[in-house]
Structure formats: C-alpha cells, structure tokens
Computed example of a mutant assay.
Amino acid sequence: MGTLSTSPAEITTSRLTDSHGRVIHDLRVSITDRCNYKCVYCRTGQVGAQFAELKIEEYLRLISLFVSLGITKVRLTGGEPLLRRGLLELVRELAQMRTIYGDPLSLALTTNGHLLDSLAQPLKDAGLHRVTVSMDAVDEPVFERITRVPGSFQAVLRGLRAAKDAGLDPVKVNCVLLRGFNDDQVEAFAEFARREDVIVRFIEFMPLEEDRLWSPEIIVPLREIVDRIHRVLPLVELPPNEASETARRYTFSDGRGEIGIIAPVTQAFCGACSRVRLTSDGKIRTCLFSQSEHDLYDLARSGAGDAELRSFITRTVDAKEARHHIGEPGFLKPSRSMVHIGG
C-alpha cells in the first residue's frame, strides 16, 4: 500500500477548532469493537451486535483527512485493537504521515494487554510511540474475576514488561475504580507503579457501561485517592504536560514513580477538551456522551471528494458540545456503550 502522507497542497493553514474556541488536535480511532475480555463493569450482560469495521485503507483515508485539518495525535482503540487484522500495516502507514507542521504524528494505542507480549516489539518497529494498558486490579484473583478470563493477569503483566523492553515509553496503566468493587486496590497500585516503573492512572467510573446502573455513590473521587495514597506514600503534585491533559499528575516524595487521576465526573475537564473520536464504523463522535453521531464513512462511500469530507469534519467539530452533563437532572447515557465508542 502506498503511503497516504498529506501533501502541502492538501493541508489547511489553521487549526481545527470548535465554536467554543477549543483547538482539536487529538483523534481517537476505534478499529474494532471486538474484545477478548468480558470485564464485568463494561459488559455486564449479553454482548450486543457488533458494528461493521472499515478496511485498513478506509481508516487511513479518513484519518489522513483529520491530519490535514490539524490533528497531531492519533490513538488507536477498540474494543481490543490488538485483535484487528492489519494493525501493523495501519501503524506503519500512519507513521509515515506528517502533521500540518511537518512533524510525524504522535501515535499511541490503548489495549487490555493480553496479546501485547508478542506484539510490543513489532508495534514499536512499525512506528508506534506509546501504549496504555487497561488493568483494573493488581491482585491476580481480583483481576481475573473482573476480566472473566483465566490466566489474564500473568498475560497482561508479560505484555506490560514487553512494552517497556520495546521502548514504548512511557507505559501507562489505566484503572477504572468502582467503590465496593476494586477500590481496595488503590494503595497496591501505587506500589505497582514504583515496582514496575509504569505510570498508573486512576479513572473515575462513568456511565458508559452496557447495563450496570451508574450512581454517584459508586465513584471513588480524586481527593479520596490522593489522600489514601499520601498516607502510605507521600505525594507531590506535578504540573500538566499540556493545557488539555486530562490527568492530574503526582509523583512520590522521593521522585520515583508517577500516578495520575482522571476525574471526568468530580473535576470535569471539558473546558480544555482537545479530542474527537472516530468509531469503528466510521462515524464521528464529538464527545463520549454525544447523543448523535456523524457518518463520515457513509459520505466517503457515496463518492464525496476530500474537500467535501474536510468540510463535513470542520462543520461537525464546530458543533462539538460545550461539556457533558453527568449527574445532572435529565442526563442521558450516550447512544453507544464504551466498548462500541472506543477508549
């Protein structure tokens, strides 16, 4: 497949922005909604129908349009993206694209880590820069009770270490906390961050599940997490890497190790949001909690040229929501669950 790098004649001179003045530079692309785990907080009932996945060359065309409009970061998600046939080819082609500034794209991937042991080095060789692993417990029986897959804990641990060995740094570990479910893992995760030399990020549970009833009481808020860790391992807050960073960052008092806390419910960061999402079937989602989607792929399939598609993207992003409304009266869950939206 030929490289789909964006040529200077095809790029815009201004950044992609919404009507609230936010610069959108981060694209999340779900390349499958299939997953080899059945995590109890994500898929609590029968697995629903899968959505159609695009061909690799179709993802590349759509992503290149976003890049030509100012996207500088692309994160591949799922489902479980390591299940996707053609993943290495996709990464190789993306690694050849250039931003409107002439720099290589920043390429990352979010995975459950089960298949990462054998794929970490090939992904690095293909051009991937960073990897984030979803891991909701460091106690092996608890972890496997969550994933409902025997042997999953050791597989993910091997994958984490393989990613570090391959140089996919910094390796991040995302843990979704639910009170009464896995909130007893907080202190152990802090030790894990130091022992394995990974960045652990705790994420407040959001109403994105298939059929679990969300309530504010199930959230483990940022302040509680910080206080609990600080009692056993004193913390020092770090400055953000950039204005749109979603995590509050902390290191330990001796400077060894880092944790982050993503608090979209108790300390929403919508005002600095820089993200837009592309689902596995080619629809644009301007927010995790959008009630509508915008079918970019259908427009492309109908024969629209690149200029028309860029105009569609620009209009869609311009109408991006100001914020989510979690916990407010009348709040509606998004039109798809997280496994179909992409992480």
Rank of each mutant, 00 (worst) to 15 (best):
D169E: 06
L94E: 11
K320L: 07
P264A: 11
F331H: 09
F289D: 08
S280T: 15
G330M: 01
H325C: 08
H129P: 01
F312C: 08
K124I: 00
H25E: 12
A52F: 01
K55D: 07
R195A: 15
I259M: 04
I326H: 12
P207H: 06
V29C: 12
H230Q: 13
R228K: 13
F269P: 04
A162P: 00
Y59E: 07
Q46A: 08
R179T: 02
D318Q: 09
D33N: 15
P240F: 10
S64P: 06
R310C: 10
I203Y: 00
R248D: 10
G79M: 11
S337P: 00
G303Q: 11
G21Q: 03
A9T: 02
R275H: 09
R92K: 15
K333N: 09
R323C: 10
V91H: 09
F331M: 08
I326V: 15
Q267G: 11
T314Q: 14
G180I: 00
R315Q: 13
L27E: 07
V91P: 11
L65E: 14
Q154L: 03
V156Q: 03
S244E: 15
I199A: 08
R61M: 05
T286Q: 13
C39H: 09
T132H: 05
P150C: 05
E191D: 15
F189N: 07
D103L: 10
D103R: 15
L296G: 13
F312D: 08
R194T: 04
K38H: 13
I313L: 05
S292F: 10
E57L: 06
S311I: 03
P329S: 03
R85G: 10
L69P: 03
T316H: 07
T13F: 04
V23W: 05
D184N: 07
Y250I: 06
V91R: 13
L83K: 12
L238N: 12
P329Y: 02
G45S: 03
G21L: 02
P8G: 04
R148N: 11
I203F: 00
I100M: 12
V67H: 10
A319T: 11
L119G: 07
G113V: 02
L88T: 06
K73A: 14
R336G: 02
T266Q: 09
